[in-house]
Design a protein around this nucleic acid. Sequence first.
DNA 1: CATTACCTGCAA
DNA 2: TTGCAGGTAATG
Length: 274
Amino acid sequence: MPELPEVETVARSLAPQLVGRQIAALEQLDWERMVETPAVERFRELIIGRQIRRVGRRAKWVLIELDAGWTLAIHLRMSGHLTVHGPDAIARRHVHLVLQLSGGERLFFDDERKFGRVRLLDAAGLAALDAAHGPEPLDERFGVTDLANILSGRRITLKQLLLDQRLLAGMGNIYVSEALWIARLHPLLPACAVNPQEVGALHAAIRQVLHQAIAHEGSSLRNYRDGYGKRGQNQEHFLVYDRANQPCQRCGTPIERLVIAQRSSFFCPLCQRL
DNA sequence: CATTACCTGCAA
DNA sequence: TTGCAGGTAATG
């Protein structure tokens, strides 16, 4: 379920627990489909003995940078969690991958829906992952002009565009609804119909929503947790997401829910321009 | 382009 | 029992 703010929070909370440790063993892997590349046996050989240098994020991928040029890229998809546990912790039901670390700690990857994915990438693989995604909206180099260029000439709806990771990295279903409400733009508005002033508002709204969610350590609707197993608090600050039929906080009109691109969208039919 | 598939659990 | 869930790849 994580979007950019949740993945960022996971990466930040894992860093102090992982950096400097060595991967001692692949203790458990009971859902092999989870490891996309390389083949499981090669994956096991390659990660054992590697030292963890850094933990970061690109789009919705957690990037665990190892020595010898390797990066462990992990996508949590809908229900994945990465948490660190002591030597005696029991890997319960949905834990599918356990890395044993030097010092006795263990990294658990649990995922009840089994959508999560792991890749061990060399420099070229990492570059390909990077190239497959649009710009990072929180990068200071991401300007209004960049967003204008992404919107320009595209006839798809704002909802679809903002969810497309190839065009802009990190937005997901919650934060698209939130940002569009702040920018007063209807999720069904075609991207190319957004005027320059509105592009500025959308750019600011996207960044505001993501910054705020990171400050609140992500949104925990049902089961999102950070690297310590802790919930976020941003769900207490939703403006429209999951608030169908509640009054719009600007104009009082009941918030509507509409399925667009197979995803629930929440918006104010009066003050978000279509 | 829109649908469907991938999985499991939970609430209506 | 059905529909829904924070995501994305595969398929018509």
